[in-house]
Amino acid sequence: AQASVVANQLIPINTYLTLVMMRSEVVTPVGIPAEDIPRLVSMQVNRAVPLGTTLMPDMVKGYA
């Protein structure tokens, strides 16, 4: 199964992502692939992302 990117903490709206904020986990539904974690660093979330939430492409500015 493919691992997705999951929030490792509460990520406030407009926060620039860093490695410590994200982890990879096999979840349903599938979100942003874990292999894209390096690409996500320094990208901004466009909403608050609670701890344990799967990151979806529409949550990250400029990802989709």
Rank of each mutant, 00 (worst) to 15 (best):
A1P: 15
A1D: 15
A1Q: 06
A1K: 03
A1Y: 09
A1M: 10
A1W: 04
Q2K: 04
Q2Y: 11
Q2C: 04
Q2V: 11
Q2F: 12
Q2W: 06
Q2T: 09
Q2R: 03
A3F: 06
A3T: 10
A3L: 11
A3N: 14
A3C: 05
A3H: 10
A3V: 06
S4Q: 02
S4Y: 04
S4N: 01
S4T: 06
S4I: 01
S4M: 02
S4A: 04
S4H: 01
V5N: 01
V5C: 05
V5G: 02
V5M: 02
V6F: 02
V6M: 05
V6L: 12
V6T: 11
A7L: 03
A7W: 02
A7N: 01
N8W: 06
N8I: 05
N8L: 08
N8Y: 05
Q9D: 11
Q9P: 00
Q9H: 10
Q9F: 10
Q9I: 14
Q9A: 15
Q9R: 08
L10N: 13
L10D: 15
L10W: 11
L10Y: 15
L10E: 15
I11P: 01
I11A: 01
I11D: 01
I11C: 02
I11V: 15
I11H: 01
I11S: 02
I11M: 09
P12W: 09
P12R: 05
P12H: 08
P12V: 05
I13L: 14
I13T: 12
I13W: 07
N14V: 02
N14K: 05
N14F: 09
N14G: 12
N14Y: 14
N14D: 14
N14A: 08
N14M: 13
N14E: 13
T15E: 15
T15C: 03
T15Y: 13
T15P: 00
T15D: 11
T15M: 13
Y16K: 10
Y16P: 14
Y16F: 13
Y16R: 08
Y16M: 15
Y16V: 15
Y16N: 10
L17C: 02
L17E: 00
L17T: 00
L17K: 00
L17Q: 00
L17N: 00
L17M: 13
T18P: 00
T18N: 10
T18C: 04
T18I: 07
T18Y: 04
L19V: 15
L19S: 11
L19H: 14
L19A: 14
L19D: 08
L19K: 12
V20E: 12
V20I: 12
V20C: 08
V20P: 14
V20M: 09
V20K: 12
M21E: 03
M21H: 15
M21P: 00
M21L: 10
M21S: 09
M21F: 09
M21I: 04
M21Q: 13
M21Y: 13
M21A: 07
M21N: 09
M21R: 03
M22H: 00
M22V: 10
M22L: 07
M22S: 00
R23K: 09
R23A: 09
S24K: 05
S24Q: 09
S24A: 12
S24G: 12
S24Y: 06
E25Q: 08
E25D: 14
E25R: 03
E25W: 04
E25H: 04
E25I: 04
E25S: 05
E25N: 07
V26Y: 11
V26N: 11
V26R: 02
V26S: 09
V26L: 14
V26A: 14
V26C: 04
V26K: 03
V27H: 05
V27I: 11
V27C: 03
V27T: 13
V27F: 02
V27K: 07
V27L: 12
V27D: 02
V27W: 02
T28K: 03
T28P: 02
T28W: 03
T28R: 02
T28V: 12
P29M: 09
P29A: 08
P29I: 13
V30M: 07
V30P: 10
V30L: 10
V30W: 05
G31Q: 03
G31L: 01
G31V: 02
G31Y: 02
G31F: 02
G31R: 03
G31I: 02
G31P: 01
G31T: 02
G31S: 03
I32D: 00
I32R: 01
I32Y: 02
I32H: 00
P33Q: 04
P33I: 06
P33R: 14
P33C: 04
P33T: 07
P33H: 12
A34F: 09
A34T: 06
A34K: 09
A34Y: 11
A34H: 11
A34V: 12
A34P: 09
E35H: 13
E35Y: 06
E35I: 05
D36Q: 09
D36N: 12
D36A: 10
D36T: 07
D36P: 00
D36R: 05
D36K: 06
I37T: 07
I37A: 11
I37M: 15
I37R: 07
I37K: 05
I37G: 05
I37F: 04
P38N: 15
P38E: 11
P38V: 07
P38H: 15
P38C: 04
P38I: 05
P38R: 05
P38M: 06
R39S: 07
R39F: 14
R39K: 11
R39H: 09
R39P: 03
R39T: 10
R39D: 03
R39V: 05
R39L: 12
L40E: 00
L40Q: 00
L40M: 11
L40H: 00
L40T: 01
L40K: 00
V41F: 07
V41H: 07
V41T: 12
V41N: 06
S42Q: 13
S42G: 10
S42K: 12
S42R: 06
S42Y: 08
M43P: 00
M43V: 07
M43S: 06
M43D: 05
M43R: 05
M43N: 09
M43W: 06
M43K: 07
Q44K: 06
Q44S: 07
Q44I: 14
Q44L: 09
Q44P: 08
Q44T: 07
V45P: 04
V45F: 01
V45M: 08
V45N: 07
V45Y: 00
N46M: 15
N46K: 08
N46P: 04
N46I: 14
N46L: 10
N46S: 13
N46Q: 15
N46A: 10
R47L: 13
R47P: 02
R47M: 15
R47T: 14
R47N: 11
R47I: 10
R47H: 11
R47F: 07
R47Y: 13
A48N: 10
A48K: 11
A48E: 15
A48M: 10
A48D: 14
A48Y: 14
A48L: 11
V49S: 02
V49Q: 02
V49E: 01
V49W: 02
V49N: 01
V49L: 12
V49F: 02
V49I: 15
P50T: 11
P50Q: 09
P50I: 08
P50K: 11
L51R: 06
L51P: 15
L51W: 12
L51K: 10
L51A: 10
G52A: 11
G52Q: 11
G52V: 02
G52K: 06
G52P: 00
G52I: 02
G52C: 04
T53W: 15
T53Y: 14
T53A: 13
T53V: 15
T53I: 12
T53L: 06
T53F: 11
T53K: 07
T53H: 08
T53P: 01
T53C: 04
T54C: 03
T54K: 04
T54R: 05
T54W: 02
T54D: 01
T54E: 02
T54S: 06
T54Y: 02
L55Q: 00
L55Y: 01
L55V: 12
L55P: 00
L55T: 00
L55M: 11
M56S: 12
M56R: 09
M56Y: 07
M56Q: 08
M56G: 06
M56E: 10
P57D: 09
P57W: 06
P57H: 09
P57K: 06
P57M: 09
P57F: 06
P57V: 06
P57L: 04
P57C: 05
D58T: 14
D58C: 04
D58A: 14
D58W: 07
D58E: 12
D58L: 07
D58Q: 11
D58S: 09
D58P: 10
M59Y: 14
M59H: 13
M59C: 03
M59I: 08
M59K: 02
M59R: 03
M59E: 03
V60R: 00
V60M: 06
V60E: 01
V60T: 02
V60W: 01
V60F: 06
V60H: 00
V60A: 02
K61R: 13
K61G: 09
K61E: 10
K61C: 13
G62D: 10
G62W: 06
G62K: 05
G62S: 09
G62L: 12
G62F: 08
G62P: 05
G62C: 05
Y63N: 07
Y63E: 04
Y63H: 07
A64R: 13
A64I: 13
A64Q: 13
